[in-house]
Design a protein around this nucleic acid. Structure first.
Length: 282
DNA sequence: CACGTCACCTGCGTGC
DNA sequence: TGCACGCAGGTGACGT
């Protein structure tokens, strides 16, 4: 579910103080209730609980689609996958008795009567407790908004890949953070067809693609992400999609009818006119 | 290496 | 109303 802008929004919300002036930063993890064991990727649920209790939260960040919670000894990684979310609850021991929701999977008891709760309807999300977070994050591609990625490097990255553009952009080992929505929106903005072969892009198209990716992600972050389906997080980027989920509607640029196709098993939305595939003899 | 298929899960909208 | 079906913001393991 959440892509880079939603994960960034959640990480920022956790980092900042809430309305009560509370921030999880600096809190001690006093206890943890694991309501669905398979939500814990590494280590075992028993060891997870043993090791995490007593550690303090130092800071909250993001890498790709992972929330990175730096603790006193270890690093807690949280991946929300399709339907995961995090929320803070306050209210003492009562929260674990009466305050839990149907899809709550892991509940951390923090100092001061606060709780950090991981909820996840589809149970795809995962938590890792690692001494070295690189064990999990080490194979991720670069951050699309990071300074070390420029048009030149991006061009070199694409040139090495003889792959369909959309699945490549969504490959977290290639680039970290793009998902189905923002990829469709970025490809539309760059006027590139999702089935183009990456190696066929010229330097100009590559530069415009990187620009489109960044603008799309930045607008998503500025709007606090997208809230769609039954998962509402407060963002409103869903009201500004150009093509995603707009099959049959008019392209905001040229007025052609937006089409849905399937690319790499994922629903894909394009304007057939703005994102035309070059014909063979061109 | 690149691509397709399946598995992991639950919930919602649609059409009969 | 009930029910089957297709669809959903993700990813990894396989097979070809």
């Amino acid at each position: 579910m959440p892509e880079l802008p939603e994960v960034e929004t959640i990480a920022r919300a956790l980092r900042q103080e809430n309305r009560r002036g509370f921030s999880i930063t600096g809190s001690e993890i006093e206890d943890v209730s694991i309501l669905w064991e398979r939500s814990i990727a590494i280590p075992s649920a028993v060891e997870f609980k043993q090791r995490v209790c007593g550690q303090h939260i130092r800071e909250v960040g993001r890498r790709g689609k992972y929330i990175v919670v730096t603790l006193t000894q270890d690093t807690l990684l949280i991946h929300l996958r399709m339907s995961g979310d995090l929320r803070i609850e306050q209210g003492g021991a009562d929260v674990l008795k009466n305050g839990l929701h149907k899809h709550d999977r892991v509940a951390f008891t923090l100092s001061g009567g606060n709780y950090l709760i991981f909820e996840d309807a589809r149970k795809f999300g995962r938590l890792w407790l690692l001494a070295d977070p690189q064990e999990e994050l080490g194979t991720l591609g670069p951050e699309p908004l990071g300074e070390e990625l420029d048009a030149l490097r991006f061009y070199a990255m694409l040139q090495g890949k003889k792959r369909q553009l959309k699945p490549l952009l969504m490959d977290q080992h290639f680039l970290a953070g793009m998902g189905n929505i923002y990829t469709d929106e970025a490809l539309f903005k760059a006027r590139l067809h999702p089935l183009l072969n990456a190696v066929d892009l010229n330097a100009e198209q590559t530069a415009s693609l990187l620009r489109a990716i960044r603008e799309t992600l930045q607008e998503g972050i500025a709007r606090n992400g997208s809230s769609i389906d039954w998962v509402y997080r407060g963002g409103d980027f869903q009201n500004h999609f150009a093509v995603y989920g707009r099959t049959g509607e008019a392209c905001p640029v040229c007025g052609a009818t937006i089409e849905r196709l399937v690319v790499g098993q994922r629903g894909t939305h394009i304007c057939p006119q703005c994102q035309a595939l070059p014909s063979r003899d061109e």
